[in-house]
Amino acid sequence: MQNKNTKETKKIDLHPKKCNICGGLVIYTNNNLIYGKSYGSGKCYLCTQCGSYVGTHEPRPTEALGLLADSQMRTLKKKCHSIFDEFWNCGSNGKQRRYLRNMAYKRLATMMRIPLEECHFGYFDLLQLKKAYNCCQVLKKRSETYTWEHTDVTKKWLEAKAAGDKEIHDHIGSVRIGTLCFDLIERKGKRDKNYLYADLYVGGIDTGYGYGKDDYPYTYVDWISRQWPVDKLPKNYKSFKKEIEEKLTMLIKHARSITLKRKQYSLQEKILDDVKIW
């Protein structure tokens, strides 16, 4: 008897003889029948009744990549990958990309409420692909949505700068995305010019630095920061907000992994979390 707390793993036939879509006869054949030329492993599994097919692994050409797919499933898989691959393909090297890819799959599996080992677009049927696409859209929106705090202070600061104010105003707002928080700080920089700094704090990592509501841990990451000359920034709030978000997006996209308490984290991973205010 199976333990009630143990999830039953979905079995995928990697050497199919019966079509998972129409029940028709499946043959193992050359994929030039589909593409007009040999591609990848050169082999595929093809349904003789509905024409659905699936490719095979190059190192293991008799092993299917997953379920047979019809045109609707193939279109959905492409749509899923067009969003999903953005979450990990921005890594600075192969090791980081693999790490981000694993993290993205873990989040998708959690959202779909399936075991991680089953979370593969090639293993999804039509209904699962539709659900996966919706989940990918949610993650994409989450990864692009910034939450601004202290906007009244930010607007007053912009008005003051537009009027020619040269004073240092220190903290002028905070910008959050996922469990990242960028404090916007005005400081004196090179050649006595005023610069706007984006100081990074990361939530959910306990280094002993600080604790917020309900003892939620957060830490300061002093080696990932950016600064911009204040006189070069837009003074209109809407334009300023747009430009800062673009700058932070580029910072997050190109920042390397951070290591805290002997564990590696990526900013790209942290933006997929729900927004957390501590």
Rank of each mutant, 00 (worst) to 15 (best):
K166H: 13
E167R: 15
I168F: 04
I168P: 11
I168A: 12
H169D: 08
D170S: 14
D170T: 13
H171G: 10
H171P: 07
I172H: 04
I172L: 05
I172V: 15
S174Y: 10
S174E: 13
S174F: 09
V175N: 07
R176P: 06
T179V: 11
L180S: 06
L180K: 04
F182G: 08
D183S: 13
D183P: 09
D183V: 10
L184F: 07
L184K: 07
L184T: 08
I185M: 15
I185R: 12
I185F: 11
I185W: 12
I185P: 10
E186F: 05
R187C: 11
R187T: 11
R187Q: 14
R187S: 10
K188T: 15
G189M: 04
G189A: 04
K190P: 07
R191I: 10
R191G: 11
D192I: 09
K193Y: 10
N194C: 14
Y195L: 13
Y195A: 08
Y195V: 10
L196W: 04
L196I: 08
Y197M: 10
Y197F: 15
Y197K: 09
A198R: 07
A198M: 09
A198T: 11
A198G: 11
D199P: 09
V202D: 03
V202T: 05
V202A: 07
G203E: 00
G204Y: 00
G204N: 02
I205G: 01
I205N: 02
I205E: 03
D206F: 02
T207Q: 03
G208D: 03
G208R: 03
Y209E: 02
Y209A: 01
Y209H: 05
G210N: 04
Y211T: 05
Y211P: 06
Y211A: 04
G212I: 00
K213N: 05
D214P: 03
D215K: 09
D215M: 07
Y216E: 01
Y216S: 02
Y216L: 01
P217S: 00
P217E: 00
Y218G: 03
Y218L: 00
Y218F: 05
Y218W: 03
Y218D: 00
Y218R: 00
Y218N: 02
T219S: 04
Y220T: 10
Y220G: 08
V221N: 07
V221L: 10
D222I: 08
D222C: 11
D222V: 09
W223E: 14
W223L: 10
W223R: 12
I224W: 04
I224M: 01
S225E: 14
Q227M: 13
Q227I: 08
Q227V: 08
W228C: 01
W228I: 06
P229C: 06
P229E: 06
P229T: 06
V230Y: 09
V230P: 12
V230S: 12
V230E: 13
V230M: 13
D231W: 07
K232T: 15
K232A: 15
K232D: 15
K232S: 15
L233M: 13
L233K: 06
L233S: 05
K235F: 12
K235T: 14
N236Y: 08
Y237H: 08
Y237S: 07
